[in-house]
Write a protein that binds this DNA or RNA. Structure first.
Lengths: 132, 132
DNA sequence: TGGAACCCTCACGTCGATGTGAGGGTCGAC
DNA sequence: GTCGACCCTCACATCGACGTGAGGGTTCCA
């Protein structure tokens, strides 16, 4: 698959895809004409990258953890050095902190929304003019 | 409390605190000398802002949702307009998507870490030289 | 054979979130 | 009264993640 199709599949701009390659996140093959050639399944990787970037992770960190996210099948070829495992574990903790932070805030919004909707129902019972 | 103390309390730079004010996230009072005066509890708000920024939310969104995150006590004075509720609900959904994305990736890292540690134990049993 | 739709590599522009000075007022202790 | 530790407001610099051309090759179809 070429870059345009991948871009349409994922909704990620061509420029961004080239940037991800520059940053070492994806390594498409090259045809004889110099065109990038992406393998099937690249779209899932790109979506994963987008999610992580949207969640505030810099490309450097994503590059570091991306190899360990695929399947448990092909991770053992990488010899696990203890220092690197520590680093991955630290990045795991950072992810966890972000999850907890976002979860707290989502729950707070949920509480607000339910309270506000209850209040809206109350208002409607009073004067019937909430949707202004 | 003045800006320096708040900065030390939160670990957020003075410059960043001024920027958050510029963006309408916090509104400290001013003393007669022009110094910013933060009320007690500002540190918690600042930590919350940092967490959200670290999680990839732009200040504009944070400004929008911040009023609804405090307590259920003081949210009802804000008359809930239906369009605004929809917008808050949409932002809630975006938070939720990020949480799911980060959770998936954290779990994948967990799986990798446990597999890698098992492999490391296996290696140690074999040749006793993992910590190179 | 030509033109539309792709693709390529520079390379500069932009935007959000900060860093980093310049130039200057304020305040407490000595 | 002056010195160090604060604080203030511009205002330009930086850095990451792209946007946006310029200038040019490739492919495919009529």
């Amino acid at each position: 698959m070429r870059i345009g199709e991948l871009s349409r599949l994922t909704g990620v701009s061509v420029r961004a895809l080239r940037y991800y390659e520059e940053e070492g996140l994806i390594r498409p093959a090259r045809g004889g004409n110099g065109y990038r050639e992406y393998c099937a399944g690249a779209d899932e990787v790109v979506r994963r990258i987008r999610g992580l970037i949207d969640s505030g992770l810099p490309t450097r960190i994503i590059r570091d953890i991306l190899p360990y996210l695929d399947g448990p099948a092909d991770l053992l070829p990488q010899i696990p050095c203890a220092r690197m495992l520590d680093q991955v574990a630290a990045e795991r903790e950072q992810l966890d902190r972000r999850i907890r932070c976002l979860t707290r805030n989502r729950d707070a919004i949920d509480a607000y929304l339910s309270a506000a909707r209850t209040a809206a129902r109350g208002d409607r019972d009073h004067d019937g003019a909430v949707r202004a």
